[in-house]
Amino acid sequence: MSTPSERVIAVVTAGLTTPSSSRLLADQLAAAVHDELSTRGVASRTEVIEVRDHAHDLTNNLLTGFPSANLEKVLTTVTTADALIVVSPTFSASYSGLFKMFFDVLDDQALAGKPVLLGATGGTERHSLVLDYALRPLFAYLKAIPVPTGVYAASTDWGPNAATLRPRITQAAAELVATLHHDNPTKPDPFENPTPFENLLNS
């Protein structure tokens, strides 16, 4: 359970190998966000979701229309988190199909108003705009709030270019934390507070 002041950061990473470079980037982003919150005296907890672990459940959800009990828990972790860090490998000039499936089974309003840090990985730097051409529109559609700086890591960023990756991670983490002084808007629960029928009748 999170204490009232504790922030929960959900990390959704869709790498396929174990370990994957997407997970590597996700961990660095999560650590940077955690550190940034710590320096501001804010406690935080990170919940990491490896989409691969839920691949069958996601397919089943698409086919049957409802999540398994396990997947439902994971989806709730994401929708109730204070902020998200998402990382996808770049496949065929976009996020991976598995990554998209995770967001396809969420209700289209489930991430409205949620701060999101966008991350992607790829073999070469040539795909780096996947962040802004693929991930950003997806989260704009979902009415989430992607922070301005996204982080793309190519293979070379784990070696000779590491020094140039680091400041981007720090910058993106700071931007995500800056959005967190807002309280998350609480969404009305339509089962707790249904629209009175007279309003439906007269609308």
């Binding site: 089962f191 629209t195 029928f197």
Partner: peptide, 26 residues
Amino acid sequence: SPEIAEQAAYYGDGFFHNNIFWPASH
């Protein structure tokens, strides 16, 4: 759709949930 449960309740009609493809919690 909670609106339809609300509608059934408003009129005092019956409410049927075709639960066959859905978990009990839902």
